[in-house]
Design a protein around this nucleic acid. Sequence first.
DNA 1: ACATTAAGTGATT
DNA 2: AATCACTTAATGT
Length: 211
Amino acid sequence: MEFETHLKELFEPGLQEEIEAHSVLKTVKADEVILDIGQYVRNIPIVLSGSIKVMRLDEEGREILLYYVGMGQSCAMTFSCCMENLPSEIKAVAESDVELLMIPTRFMDEWMMKYPSWKSFIMRNSRERFNEMLRIIDQIAFQKLDVRLINYLKEKSETQDSHLLNVSHEQIAKELATSRVVVSRLLKKLENEGDLLLYRNQIKLLNKFYE
DNA sequence: ACATTAAGTGATT
DNA sequence: AATCACTTAATGT
């Protein structure tokens, strides 16, 4: 099974033996709940095949997708939960049929000290997760600002009754409560898409902008 | 020619 | 998205 080959690249020999000795292989069918909110984490899962979706519930009990955990990855939330022995804040469901390697949480501390590769595995996972969620948040926030900027420009051209706006990126940033760099990037994107032209202290809105 | 300010970019968090 | 650090372009003196 590719479980062996995959782990050999990831962990040093001593740790591989420990994993084999202490972990339990578990297979989960698609749509099966692996970890529910409020449950205590007893095992650190490592996904060998398939993928898991991790979500949380909002006030109305609707499910919000946080991220997917794919092969060779582990769930970052379980790390923090099991360290402090706190109940899970998240719900994990098998997206497809999944093969999991379940490692009892009691090995966390010990392996952390003993095996550099375990530590970097945990670190890498946390970082990947963090970056992925950051990207999602940025996309949502970015779209909001994108719309706000476009509305701002439309309003401005209306009140000034002109397609040529005399305004600096810095001024716009101030009005939209953001940074100049962000405005510059957004405007640059609009320029590349052919919606407007940029000059120093001036922005020319093209016909395409109003479509 | 030199200083100052606006805008562009890449990398990081 | 925000911030930093740095570059490049435009303007003013």
